[in-house]
Design a binder for these strands. Structure first.
Lengths: 218, 218
DNA sequence: TTTGTTAGTATTAATTTGCTACTTACTGTG
DNA sequence: CACAGTAAGTAGCAAATTAATACTAACAAA
């Protein structure tokens, strides 16, 4: 059967379609941990469980637009790193009806999160352990965490988790948390040397040597 | 607005849903080139252009199942490496109606392709140049090529493009084509040494030293 | 001035990668 | 049957990265 025959068959008779949603895994690093935005469900199914923010995809918006809308509606944030993750299509992933969900992940620096939202972030590690998560959202979080772990080393996504101005110990900590391992200070600095720009500013107020403040190059 | 309110609003009033399709980027390495399976469209839109095999997702099948179905229906192949790529949701990607397409890529060893299908494979490089491709299928091919290039070095996907029994020059060639660069023989062998198992067999019939035949370990 | 603490640099060992050159084993030709 | 041609396979070393440790620098507080 050709694609064309399929279109005809599909449009005429069995005209049922799945719903399409976008779910958002919003990551940040808080208190030296990778954290995710979750809200407790106040309705069935999965009443009381934690779930990711999500929206249905409108006929007049792209997937990326839907993801940005979800982000903005739920957190008020915009202009942050956002990337498509994976599309989930298990038959019973939502017990109410067939919903195919395109997951996205986003990265925000801790400092950029409004105070009203801070309480909604949970450490990814713990969340994935305790299994109190609605739908297949645990899989989405795990998949996102994995994607980030892979991309840290060959992209610059770590910078998306740090403010515009940052210190190298700060940045290194982010790398370490995302990678899940300690790095060597000297080597780390050599490696990112070409991606950063020193400023003339230093941290202050700490009871130890101040740290130079940098910005991302370009 | 909560997700629940959305569900209600969505189901009752504006009940229109996009169609969901799966498109398959089937790669192989033929004549020292990365090639893709394409068929010429015999219908509008994009009449005469080359397009990827695709199917609509049924209500009773998962996305992975739909991808396998597409593969089997179009080529008769099964039990090959298959992985989800990316989901495409531009508004006008299909001029007939709103179709969201989940792309998958698959890898087959040249030797496993039935003769009837061999003519349908085109070098990815050329295809992406000449822009004779239907829909956004060119983007899908490019995205798949990129994904493979990335995964070659830290996974074992290259083995999916080689028969069960293979020589090291053969395998190295696959790596080189996927990565788009020459590799050093000795280093290559060191690196994959723990992933392969030597057999007692050798190639024959060539007018030079025969090559030992290996299998994938595990 | 001393201590505690973190920032930042220097140095060296171990490993991996880049690269060249060699030996080995076959076929076909004189 | 030697020799040329060709690709398989191995050895070895230089260059670059990564792993690891030790050091010096700059602050606050006692």
């Amino acid at each position: 059967m050709t694609e064309e025959e399929f279109v005809r068959q599909y449009d005429s008779s069995a005209f049922q379609k799945p719903s399409v949603a976008v779910d958002l895994v919003l990551f940040t690093v808080m208190q030296e941990q990778l954290c995710v935005l979750l809200t407790e469900r106040n309705q069935h199914p999965f009443l009381g469980r934690l779930s990711l923010p999500g929206v249905f995809v409108r006929m007049d918006e792209t997937l990326d637009e839907a993801a940005h809308r979800a982000l903005y509606q739920k957190t008020g944030l915009h202009d942050i790193y956002l990337e498509q993750l994976y599309t989930w299509g298990a038959l019973e992933r939502d017990p109410r009806m067939r919903i195919i969900s395109v997951s996205y992940y986003a990265l925000v620096p801790d400092a950029q999160i409004p105070d009203s939202e801070r309480g909604k972030f949970f450490p990814a590690e713990e969340i994935l352990q305790c299994k109190n998560i609605a739908f297949d959202h645990g899989d989405m979080i795990a998949y996102g965490r994995e994607r980030i772990r892979n991309k840290v080393s060959y992209t610059e996504i770590a910078f998306s988790l740090v403010p515009e101005e940052f210190t190298l110990p700060q940045l290194q900590k982010i790398y370490e948390i995302l990678l899940g391992q300690k790095l060597y200070k000297a080597n780390f600095r050599k490696k990112i040397a070409d991606k950063i720009q020193p400023t003339e500013k230093f941290t202050s107020g700490n009871k130890h040597r101040p740290s130079r403040i940098y910005r991302k190059k370009d």
